[in-house]
Amino acid sequence: MGTTAIPAGTKWWSGGKSPFNVNYGKVMMWYFLMSDAFTFGAFLISYGTIRFSVNHWADPNHVFNAFPFAGHANLPLAFVSLMTFILIFSSVTMVLAVHEGHHMNRKGVEKYMILTIIGGLAFLSCQAWEWTHLLTGEHVALLSDGTLGVIPTTVKANPWGADLSHTEMLSALQKSSHEQLVAIASTLHHGAEVAHESLTSLTNAELINKITSAGLHATHSGPIAFGGYFFGITGFHGFHVFSGVVINIVMYIKTKLGHFDQRGHYEMIEKTGLYWHFVDLVWVFVFLCFYLV
């Protein structure tokens, strides 16, 4: 990193001036962010440790392959790319707000703060959709009692294990109850309305025949730690985004009221910007650990 030219013979540690040439508030914001980096780092490393300790982990390209209004189209990486670019763009608008603050341009700060807030809200909306999609998803997986069940992705259920072989699936189907078979059969026709009564009236053998002939895709259950880590870490990050949006709104209002013009500087916008960029920085690593590798 290129450093600013320092006047020769400056005595940084003799008192009366900041040895870091930065005022107290900004130094403490940096140290808070550093501690927060260790918190996120510890979460992600814990996730990595558990992931390294098992033989099969959920494949992100299968878990995160959906897109709003795209039905059941297989679109790996698409939605998370959108979320990533939303966050990068809101980072740019934030740094432009800081830039306008350096030039004491209140109108410019207001404009870019509004754009940053919109970016943050767009990201949170995306995350809300993604969580809903996972929590309400329906996937056929082998349960711990040897039967097949329809389960979502939650902190207690993970349907993203390895694929079941045909014989494993048949034996699991034989053990499954009538209600389980009806639930599995009704997932076979995505979107199409199948009368529930017409399925419940079938016998177990007829249901199994219907399920196998439709080419059911079933998996082992995966390690349940997946949901806890995914919802825990993206939730902690999402809460940072949420609090960042709230802080940005407060700063927008203070700009609008002219508080920073009265103070003669926009350093509060700089400190808010540090927090907002940190949120983007954390996402870069969450994106890497959960979606890319």
Binding site: G2, T3, P19, V22, V95
Partner: peptide, 24 residues
């Protein structure tokens, strides 16, 4: 590549590259 992105965000967007060496 992720570390490179992190470097650019911290150095330029967070202006850490403009601070003095002690602080960095």
């Amino acid at each position: 590549l992720t570390l490179a992105k992190a470097y650019y965000i911290v150095s330029v967007f967070m202006h850490l590259g403009d601070e003095i060496r002690n602080f960095i």
